[in-house]
């Protein structure tokens, strides 16, 4: 049997809207992943430290306060710096589609906007996560 996908769900910045992050944590767990939800007010350093500590395969970022262009690329950079190059970095929230290109160039494997079916996110992770 393949080992479980390990995932960190994180809320970068001061945004308190975590309905999506909590809901997805539950859905990912149901899909057989091992999920750690960091809670609110995470700095990029804290998120990457959690990824290191948990030996995560996936890091998921949720942002609803318009700070994605600031925080997402910093998490990507730090992951690289710490040698976690094969960690799958995904994000979602209130993110204008015009920002998607910039975020993907900055190291996000995928960005999911409002209304995305959770099944689509689960299958993206399952097909793109590193093989252990």
């Amino acid at each position: 049997m393949a080992s479980k996908i390990k995932m960190i769900m994180a809320k970068p910045g001061l945004d308190g809207h975590d309905r999506g992050a909590k809901l997805l944590s539950r859905i990912f767990a149901e899909a057989g992943m091992e999920v750690v939800y960091t809670g609110l007010r995470q700095t990029p350093e804290m998120i990457v430290a959690a990824a290191l500590q948990e030996d995560a395969d996936v890091v998921g970022l949720s942002s609803l306060s318009g700070v994605h262009n600031y925080f997402f690329p910093r998490v990507a950079e730090l992951l690289k710096e710490k040698g976690l190059k094969d960690v799958l970095l995904v994000g979602g929230g209130i993110i204008p589609t015009e920002d998607y290109d910039f975020l993907k160039k900055s190291g996000m494997a995928a960005v999911f906007g409002p209304g995305t079916p959770t099944t689509e996110i689960v299958s993206f992770i399952q097909s793109n996560v590193r093989k252990r």
Binding site: G13, L14, R41, S65, V67, Y70
Partner: peptide
């Protein structure tokens, strides 16, 4: 402001004037 930090606090980075 809602979280009780000034605009130049490290945790305010990226958030100033946003929402």
């Amino acid at each position: 402001t809602q979280a009780g930090y000034d605009s130049d606090h490290p945790l305010s980075m990226g958030e100033v004037g946003k929402v």
